[in-house]
Amino acid sequence: MTGIVKWFNADKGFGFITPDDGSKDVFVHFSAIQNDGYKSLDEGQKVSFTIESGAKGPAAGNVTSL
């Protein structure tokens, strides 16, 4: 699925993605970002991701920028 990064705190390594389908915002951890180098996201960035079952509920996985 796709969405827009609502916010991401690079110091803490997590944030939230707002899915394009209008569903509830999804937690994203830096370890789910699939790019080389520094793993961070920018507010407003368009991303593709999967929904994984995290310890505290749904979380984004396999996050790639579009």
Results as ranks from 00 to 15, higher is better:
55 A>L: 13
35 N>E: 12
18 T>H: 08
27 F>G: 01
32 A>L: 03
6 K>V: 05
11 D>V: 15
51 I>E: 03
64 T>V: 15
60 A>Q: 01
46 K>H: 13
23 S>I: 06
10 A>T: 13
14 F>W: 15
55 A>I: 13
20 D>M: 10
18 T>S: 11
3 G>L: 01
13 G>P: 00
65 S>L: 15
1 M>N: 08
27 F>D: 01
65 S>V: 15
42 D>Q: 14
40 S>E: 07
58 P>M: 11
63 V>L: 05
53 S>H: 14
63 V>R: 01
22 G>R: 06
60 A>F: 02
24 K>L: 10
1 M>K: 11
37 G>M: 09
44 G>I: 02
40 S>M: 12
34 Q>Y: 09
51 I>Q: 05
59 A>G: 06
26 V>D: 00
24 K>A: 14
62 N>K: 11
8 F>H: 01
38 Y>W: 15
53 S>V: 14
51 I>C: 07
8 F>R: 01
1 M>R: 11
49 F>G: 01
16 F>K: 04
43 E>W: 14
9 N>C: 13
11 D>I: 13
22 G>E: 05
41 L>F: 05
55 A>N: 12
13 G>D: 01
27 F>C: 03
45 Q>P: 01
35 N>D: 14
13 G>Y: 02
53 S>C: 14
42 D>C: 15
64 T>F: 08
37 G>K: 10
27 F>H: 02
44 G>D: 04
57 G>V: 05
53 S>P: 15
17 I>Y: 00
13 G>V: 01
14 F>E: 03
58 P>A: 10
50 T>M: 09
17 I>Q: 00
26 V>C: 05
31 S>G: 06
62 N>Y: 10
45 Q>W: 09
25 D>H: 05
43 E>N: 13
37 G>I: 09
7 W>R: 04
43 E>T: 15
51 I>P: 05
17 I>H: 00
29 H>W: 05
43 E>F: 12
7 W>M: 05
6 K>D: 03
22 G>H: 08
49 F>V: 01
49 F>P: 00
32 A>S: 11
63 V>H: 01
35 N>V: 13
14 F>C: 05
48 S>G: 09
58 P>S: 09
64 T>E: 10
1 M>Y: 12
30 F>E: 07
39 K>G: 07
60 A>N: 01
11 D>M: 14
61 G>E: 10
53 S>T: 14
45 Q>D: 12
20 D>G: 06
32 A>W: 04
48 S>M: 13
56 K>W: 15
41 L>K: 01
43 E>D: 10
65 S>R: 14
4 I>H: 09
58 P>T: 11
8 F>A: 02
43 E>H: 14
59 A>F: 15
59 A>R: 15
39 K>A: 08
20 D>I: 08
10 A>F: 09
35 N>Y: 11
48 S>I: 12
18 T>Y: 07
7 W>E: 02
26 V>R: 02
13 G>S: 03
19 P>A: 04
31 S>Y: 05
55 A>F: 13
51 I>Y: 10
33 I>A: 03
48 S>F: 13
39 K>I: 07
31 S>F: 05
49 F>T: 01
56 K>A: 11
43 E>Q: 14
32 A>F: 04
51 I>A: 04
62 N>L: 10
16 F>D: 00
10 A>C: 14
29 H>K: 03
19 P>E: 02
41 L>W: 04
9 N>R: 10
26 V>M: 05
31 S>L: 08
55 A>R: 13
52 E>M: 12
48 S>P: 00
18 T>A: 11
61 G>F: 13
54 G>V: 06
24 K>T: 11
19 P>L: 06
7 W>F: 09
61 G>I: 15
50 T>C: 09
11 D>T: 14
45 Q>S: 10
60 A>S: 03
60 A>C: 04
48 S>R: 13
10 A>D: 08
66 L>S: 08
1 M>V: 10
3 G>K: 00
38 Y>F: 14
4 I>C: 14
47 V>Q: 00
12 K>H: 10
57 G>F: 07
43 E>R: 15
33 I>G: 03
57 G>M: 06
45 Q>G: 07
39 K>P: 10
29 H>E: 04
4 I>D: 03
63 V>E: 01
35 N>W: 11
44 G>H: 06
66 L>F: 08
9 N>G: 04
37 G>S: 09
63 V>Y: 00
28 V>Y: 04
35 N>I: 14
19 P>S: 04
66 L>M: 13
61 G>T: 14
13 G>T: 02
31 S>I: 05
37 G>H: 09
18 T>K: 13
49 F>H: 01
4 I>A: 06
59 A>V: 14
31 S>V: 05
9 N>Q: 06
6 K>I: 06
53 S>Q: 15
7 W>H: 04
43 E>I: 14
